[in-house]
């Protein structure tokens, strides 16, 4: 995964953080999902201003995990998000989604 990329919510995604939990609706199926605390924190950072390396660094610091662990967790999370078309990856930083 190219850590210079900037993840942003997919234009077809509906989401909201409710009382510290991200609630996300998958675009195609209308399926509703909730993210755990780490997933919610990553979701907060997915607004086009932080690239993947920056997000991994933030997770490493805030959750006191190794850089390797932070990257692995982030990649696993993003793979799932990309597969379900919840996010897209951009080459440059954009405005807040």
């Amino acid at each position: 995964m190219d850590l210079r990329k900037y993840p942003v919510p997919h234009s077809q995604t509906a989401a909201r953080i409710v009382d510290g939990t991200a609630v996300i609706v998958l675009a195609d199926t209308g399926e509703v999902n909730v993210l755990n605390s780490v997933g919610t924190r990553i979701w907060e950072l997915i607004e086009g201003k932080h690239n993947l390396q920056e997000i991994a660094d933030t997770i490493q610091i805030e959750y006191a995990v190794t850089p390797q662990q932070a990257l692995e967790d982030l990649e696993e999370f993003l793979d799932e998000m990309l597969k379900n078309q919840v996010i897209t990856l951009e080459d440059t930083a954009g405005s807040s989604a």
């Binding site: 995604t13 509906a14 675009a27 195609d28 199926t29 209308g30």
Partner: peptide
């Protein structure tokens, strides 16, 4: 209505 993103957003709100 949930497969329409704007509607789904409204539902969540």
């Amino acid at each position: 209505v949930m497969t329409q993103p704007l509607a789904a957003q409204r539902v969540i709100e």
